[in-house]
Design a protein around this nucleic acid. Sequence first.
DNA 1: CCATTAATTTAGT
DNA 2: ACTAAATTAATGG
Length: 236
Amino acid sequence: MSNEFGFLNKQYSSCASCLDRFCAIALLNNEQVSTLQQNCRELSLHKKEHILLEGSFTSHIVYLRSGLVVEYIKGDNGRDQMVQIIKSFSYLGLNSLFGGRINHYSYKALNDVKVCYIDVETFKNLVRGNGDFAYEILVLISKDNLSSHRRFLSINAKQTYGKVADALLYFGNDIFDSNTFTFPVTRDEFGSLLGITRESTSRALAKFQNEGFIKISGSSITLTNTEQLHKISKTG
DNA sequence: CCATTAATTTAGT
DNA sequence: ACTAAATTAATGG
């Protein structure tokens, strides 16, 4: 690979030896990995930077190598509607792959992230040309679909304190694998994930802290009584 | 029970 | 210092 722009010749770790790569990449043959390599750019982005924008053409599928990302849509009133938090080793924009030519969601970095932009036609060709790989991509889309439906139905069934307790447990168990973590979103965004206001979020967190279920210091939060949080998540 | 409004405090750059 | 974000209290659907 050579071109007239020196900075584009910077050598990145190859897809073949990438330690962060999605497991299904192992199902590609050498030629396919090489094609992927040639149509893929690695980028480091900082917290708050946009990765994809709703409404723009789906020119790329993005692979999230490291960091946290939030998926959201633009709200009518100017308030964005958060859809979900996405962990590393995930693809962004997959659900827009066959949904017309535009991205249906925006994505922004919640902390410093490493991403790979993969040319969308290249990605589609890999899906067409490799059944095992396509199967794994279908699994991803299906899982995302199921978890989204479950999440929205669950939110619908709960009221504020239950929603907040649920989300805290979700962060602790699924996102951070720890009962202590740095809050990745603003109160406003957190509320938006659950369909509640930032004030209700504040009130719920303050209440939980007063009752000793959680401990907040700065942006760091500790779940000290997951038992009670579970109970509230179910009942209230 | 909870959103809205508004006033105040705190954090981030 | 200035702006964005968070908290708190009061009100009303």
